[in-house]
């Protein structure tokens, strides 16, 4: 029963959230997003600078919104990885400093575990097969014996990355996110262009699809074979079908009948709809969350950190480093049976 504050900044989102595990409520969940001009992605240095300039303002906001002072906080949680080095470091320094300043224990959290635990917490599902889709990760995960084990994943780029980079080809706005704008465009698309469909067992490959559509798109558009909307539609239909298929295959293998979608791409309603159709066919249940919890946020780090803290663990100060490579299955899950 603790009040935990979570610091997240592994990519272009900076989030600080406070949760109370006694009442299981999110007291505050503040966020700033670093938005780049159309046609450009976010780079580590600029993103780190963005986080640095905003982090204290967001912290004050989070405390004020939760109506708490520093004394009410029991534990400080921060994202240890995976993510971009620079932004991770900025946030970790703040978390570490506060831990010393306020004399509180600190817990380093795996970003992916944060997503999963937040999803489980919000949707109250028991033991789901998890599809974790974001700008940096694409994994199909199931829990077994104290680990979140990866059943399938992308063997090259992440699905969010694929969508973001395609948005750059079409020069779509990055506000609020390139994926959101693709989703809106896709709603108006009707013609399905033939794009490679690349499933390898339980894994997917997306880089070839991106190259293909990047190279063909200008020609198709010039000759009037399809509209930008059709391209967005085709890309979503193809890529999401691959994700749903691998998820279904993992479910068939484990005999699971719950699916949880987490991660930034998880708030795409078309992906949710396709997954729901798949679940209906199998008599399974879909659990999904909206953009407040899907997209990187501070509360999810607090939720996962609090779970670990409640089992009596915290991170030693000398171990509160950050790491860019930190696989989901490296974490020992002490809080589940």
């Amino acid at each position: 029963m603790v009040i935990a504050i979570g610091f997240e900044g592994s990519a272009n989102k900076l989030g600080i959230g406070i949760v109370d595990t006694k009442t299981n409520t999110i007291l505050s969940n503040c966020r700033r997003t670093y938005v780049t001009p159309p046609g450009e992605g976010f780079l580590p240095r600029e993103t780190a600078q963005h986080h640095k300039s905003k982090v204290l303002e967001v912290l004050k906001e989070a405390l004020a919104e939760a109506k708490l002072s520093q004394d009410d906080i029991d534990v400080i949680c921060y994202t240890k990885g995976p993510g971009m080095g620079g932004p991770l470091q900025v946030v970790a320094i703040v978390a570490r400093t506060l831990a010393l300043l306020w004399n509180k224990p600190i817990v380093g959290v795996n970003h992916c575990i944060g997503h999963i635990e937040m999803g489980r917490n919000v949707t109250k599902c028991e033991n789901p097969t998890v599809l974790y889709v974001s700008g940096g990760n694409t994994q199909v995960i199931a829990y077994s014996r104290q680990r979140y084990r990866i059943f399938g994943e992308t063997i090259d780029i992440a699905v969010g990355n694929c969508l973001d980079r395609f948005a750059r080809v079409l020069k779509l706005s990055n506000d609020p996110s390139p994926g959101y704008n693709i989703e809106q465009m896709a709603k108006k698309g009707t013609k399905l262009m033939s794009i490679p469909y690349c499933v390898k067992g339980m894994d997917v490959s997306l880089s070839g699809i991106l190259s293909y559509i990047e190279s063909r798109a200008p020609g198709w558009l010039d000759q009037g074979e399809c509209t930008p909307e059709d391209l967005c539609f085709s890309l979503q239909e193809t890529v999401f079908a691959m994700l749903v298929e691998t998820t279904e295959r993992a479910m068939a293998h484990t005999g699971s009948n719950e699916v949880l979608i987490v991660g930034g791409v998880g708030c795409n309603l078309r992906l949710q709809e396709m997954m729901r159709l798949m679940c209906d066919e199998r008599g399974a249940t879909l659990y999904a969350t909206d953009e407040r919890y899907c997209i990187d946020n501070g509360a999810m780090i607090a939720v996962a950190g609090a779970l670990e803290f409640e089992t009596g663990q915290s991170t030693k100060l000398e171990d509160t480093f950050v790491t860019q490579r930190y696989r989901t299955d490296e974490v020992f899950i002490s809080w589940r049976t």
Partner: peptide, 13 residues
């Protein structure tokens, strides 16, 4: 080599 690909694949998110 194939195994490495999966392992590397942990970056931003």
């Amino acid at each position: 080599e194939v195994e490495m690909r999966g392992r590397k694949r942990c970056m931003v998110g």
